[in-house]
C-alpha cells in the first residue's frame, strides 16, 4: 500500500477510503479533452474499475488538448489508446474500452455495470441521454462542459438530487469545441474539477457539488456558483427515454394536412384544456376514458393522438398497443401548434 501512502494519511481517505476507491466502478462517457484530463488522475488514485465509452478515433487536431494521445495514436480508437496509457500507468486497473458511441440502445445496460457516470462528452443531445439513463438506473452523474474559456461543473442525480433537465429543461442547439474553439488548459481544469467530485463521492467526504452549478472562467480567473432546485414536474420514464433516445422507436409523427385523408386526430386532454380544436376530424377522448372507448376505433383508419406537450399522447399510444387492430401514433405537435397548422392549412 506504499503507493497510496501520501493519500491514505489524509483522514478523509485512510485505508478504508483506499479500499472504497479500489472497489469503485466509474464509467467515463467521452475520451476527449475532459476524459483525457480526468482519467489518469482517477487511475492514479487507485480507482479499481474504469470504463470508457467513445467511438471516436484520434485526430491530429485533438492533440493540443487530449494529452493521453501522441502522434503515433492518430487513427487509433481513442478508448484503446487511453486504455493502453492507463494500463501502463496502473497495471492492476480493470479498464474496459467500449469502441462505440453511447446511444439509446446501449446506455441503460452500460450504466447498470457502474456506480458513477462521468459526462465528458461534447454533444448536447448525449448530455440528455446520459442524464435520462442515469435517472432510470439511479446513478450520479459528474458533469463537465466547455465553452471557449469557460467550463461548467455539477453533479446530477446525486442522492435523488436535481438533474441536468432541472438545470436546462430543453434540448437546444449549442456549439461544440470543434465549432467554438478551446484551449487545452481550460478543458484540463474542468476535467480536474470533475475528477475531484468523483473522488469525494466515492470517499463520502466533503461537499458534493449537487444542486449547484459551478462556472470557472480561465480568462478572468474567476468562478461563479449558482444554486438550482429539483424540478418535480420533470418525470423521466422508460417511455420518455425510448421516445427521446431510441432511433427505431418512433411512435411520434409530425402533423401534415395529408394525415387527415385517412386519419383521425384524437385529443386526449380533458375537456377544459385550451385551445380546443374545432375540426370534423378531431375526436375528443380524455386519456382517462380511453380504455372504455376502445371499441369505437376502426381498423381501417389511422389515429393520431395529441395533448398539450405530447406526454399523454404517447401514453395513449402505449395503452392501445395491445389492441393490434388500432393504428395509433402520437403527434409531435401539441394542441397550440396543431391549431395554428390546421387553421393555416384550411385557409
Amino acid at each position: 500500500m506504499n503507493k497510496y501512502q501520501r493519500q491514505t494519511i489524509l483522514p478523509q481517505v485512510g485505508i478504508n477510503g483506499q479500499q472504497k476507491l479500489a472497489e469503485a466502478r466509474v464509467l467515463i462517457v467521452g475520451a476527449g479533452g475532459l476524459g483525457c484530463a480526468l482519467l489518469p488522475y482517477l487511475a492514479a488514485a487507485g480507482i479499481g474499475n474504469l470504463g470508457i465509452v467513445d467511438g471516436d478515433q484520434v485526430e491530429e487536431s485533438n492533440l493540443h488538448r487530449q494529452i493521453l494521445y501522441t502522434p503515433k495514436n492518430i487513427g487509433e480508437h481513442k478508448v484503446e489508446a487511453a486504455k493502453t496509457f492507463l494500463k501502463a500507468q496502473q497495471p492492476e486497473l480493470h479498464c474496459t474500452a467500449y469502441t462505440e458511441y453511447l446511444s439509446g440502445e446501449n446506455a441503460l445496460d452500460l450504466f447498470k455495470e457502474y456506480d458513477i457516470i462521468i459526462d465528458a462528452t461534447d454533444r448536447i443531445e448525449v448530455r440528455y441521454l446520459i442524464n435520462d439513463a442515469a435517472v432510470l438506473t439511479n446513478k450520479p452523474v459528474v458533469y463537465g462542459s466547455i465553452h471557449r474559456f469557460e467550463g461548467q461543473v455539477s453533479v446530477f442525480n446525486y442522492e435523488n438530487g436535481p438533474t441536468y433537465r432541472c438545470l436546462f429543461p430543453k434540448a437546444v442547439e449549442v456549439p461544440s469545441c470543434e465549432e467554438a474553439g478551446v484551449l487545452g488548459t481550460s478543458v484540463g481544469l474542468i476535467g480536474m474539477l470533475q475528477a475531484a467530485e468523483v473522488l469525494k463521492i466515492i470517499l463520502e467526504t466533503g461537499n458534493v457539488l449537487s444542486g449547484e452549478l459551478l462556472i470557472y472562467n480561465t480568462l478572468t480567473a474567476t468562478q461563479d456558483r449558482f444554486k438550482f432546485k429539483k424540478n418535480e414536474n420533470i418525470q423521466i420514464t422508460q417511455e420518455s427515454f425510448n421516445a427521446a433516445h431510441k432511433n427505431n422507436y418512433s411512435p411520434k409523427v409530425s402533423f401534415s394536412i395529408d394525415l387527415l385523408v385517412n386519419g383521425i386526430l384524437v385529443d386526449v386532454r380533458t375537456k377544459e384544456e385550451q385551445p380546443r380544436i374545432a375540426n370534423a376530424s378531431v375526436l375528443e377522448i380524455p386519456l382517462q376514458e380511453l380504455n372504455r372507448k376502445v371499441q369505437d376505433f376502426e381498423s381501417s383508419k389511422d389515429y393520431y393522438f395529441f395533448c398539450q406537450s405530447g406526454a399523454r399522447a404517447l401514453q395513449a399510444v402505449r395503452l392501445l398497443k395491445e389492441h393490434k387492430h388500432i393504428n395509433a401514433k402520437a403527434l409531435t405537435e401539441g394542441a397550440a401548434q396543431l391549431q395554428k397548422l390546421i387553421t393555416t392549412a384550411s385557409v
Binding site: G30, I124, I146, V174, F226
Partner: peptide, 10 residues
C-alpha cells in the same frame, strides 16, 4: 442577474 446558457464542448 446572470444569464446562463448550456455549454456543449468537452
Amino acid at each position: 442577474i446572470a444569464l446562463l446558457p448550456p455549454y456543449a464542448g468537452g
